[in-house]
Simulated scan of single mutants.
Amino acid sequence: MVKHVLRVIVLIYLLFLLILPVALIGWRTFGDGPGPFIDALTTHSALHAFQVTLVVAGWAVVLNTVFGVVAALLLARHEFPGKRLLNALIDLPLAVSPVVVGLALILVYGTFSPVGGWFEGRGIQIIFSTPGMVLATVFVCLPLVVRSIVPVLEELGDEQEQAARTLGAGGWQTFRRVTLPSIRAALGYGIVLSLARALGEYGAVAVVSGRTVDETQTLTLFVEERFENFDVQASYSAALALAVLAVAGLLATKLLRPRDGS
């Protein structure tokens, strides 16, 4: 009896918090058929927002994948002073508001800061351009690849890697032939999580992008801008596109989730 009551409570909670809002967006989007949905997502502004989103998310995923693998190997395979501090810093993006991240990036890389001024003096604008948006997205996605790989490395141990080195394999060869195949599923899981997080990021990107239409506007910013300008069809269509991407990412994480004993 208690099990059934708890199940009903959970289903009702999910119904009103998740299922109904998403279903309502879908119903509003296709209320007049698929034509307006296609038209809304094929405008110049919408296509540009898709392009900016993919560029920012792509760079963020690549950078976080490289950092995540290196940091995971460092945490799981080595002991060094400050290891606990590094471990804690990696989780910092989970505790800090993305808006605070955006403000901090402006203070460091803004035009009137020493670092930002140095870059702009050499023709590289960071804030209110793609590099700043990439930095903001990298920050909010920082822990995802690391936290996907570290438990797998700790569970596997380093016996196989030591055996490979004993047989004469170098560091890169050991990583490519022994370590990488062992963490492939966990790495894929972390990459998909990072991609999903990057595609849906709003707060930090909104602060550092300047929200310039057709220049620094991601899909999440496009949704807000179109809704504020009473273009609800474009807003709902873009929101549904983001929801579909999120569901696809969720399905991918289920397929790539490391299984016990793998």
Rank of each mutant, 00 (worst) to 15 (best):
W118Q: 01
F119M: 11
F119A: 11
G121A: 07
G121N: 09
R122Q: 12
I124C: 09
I124A: 14
I126E: 06
I127H: 00
F128H: 05
P131E: 05
G132K: 04
G132R: 01
M133T: 07
V134W: 05
L135G: 06
L135K: 04
A136G: 03
A136L: 07
A136E: 04
T137N: 03
V138C: 13
V138N: 03
F139S: 00
V140W: 07
V140Y: 03
L142H: 00
L142D: 01
L142E: 01
L142A: 10
P143L: 05
V146H: 08
V146P: 11
R147L: 12
R147P: 04
S148D: 03
S148Y: 06
S148M: 03
V150E: 09
P151R: 09
P151G: 06
P151K: 07
V152A: 06
V152E: 04
V152Q: 08
E154S: 05
E155A: 14
E155N: 12
E155S: 15
G157W: 13
E159K: 14
Q160E: 13
A164L: 01
R165G: 13
R165P: 03
T166L: 13
T166S: 09
T166Q: 07
L167T: 06
L167G: 08
L167R: 10
G168I: 09
G168W: 11
A169R: 10
A169T: 10
A169D: 13
G171K: 10
G171L: 07
W172S: 04
W172M: 13
Q173S: 12
T174M: 11
T174L: 07
F175D: 08
F175I: 05
F175P: 07
R176S: 14
R176D: 06
R176L: 14
R176T: 10
R177H: 14
R177G: 08
R177Y: 12
T179W: 00
T179R: 08
S182D: 07
I183T: 05
A186R: 04
A186C: 02
L187K: 02
L187C: 03
L187P: 02
L187M: 04
G188A: 06
G188F: 07
Y189F: 14
Y189M: 08
Y189T: 11
Y189E: 06
G190E: 03
G190Q: 08
G190L: 02
G190P: 09
I191F: 01
L193D: 09
S194T: 06
S194G: 12
R197N: 09
L199W: 05
L199V: 13
G200V: 01
E201Q: 07
G203P: 09
G203H: 02
A204Y: 01
V205N: 00
V205Y: 03
V205G: 01
A206G: 08
A206Q: 11
A206Y: 12
V208D: 08
S209E: 01
G210H: 12
G210Q: 10
T212V: 13
T212F: 13
D214W: 10
D214Y: 13
E215M: 00
E215L: 15
E215Y: 13
T216G: 07
F222T: 03
E224Q: 15
E225L: 14
E225C: 04
F227M: 14
F227R: 15
E228A: 11
E228R: 14
F230S: 15
F230D: 10
F230T: 11
V232H: 12
V232Y: 15
V232I: 14
Q233T: 15
Q233N: 11
A234W: 05
A234G: 15
S235R: 01
Y236P: 00
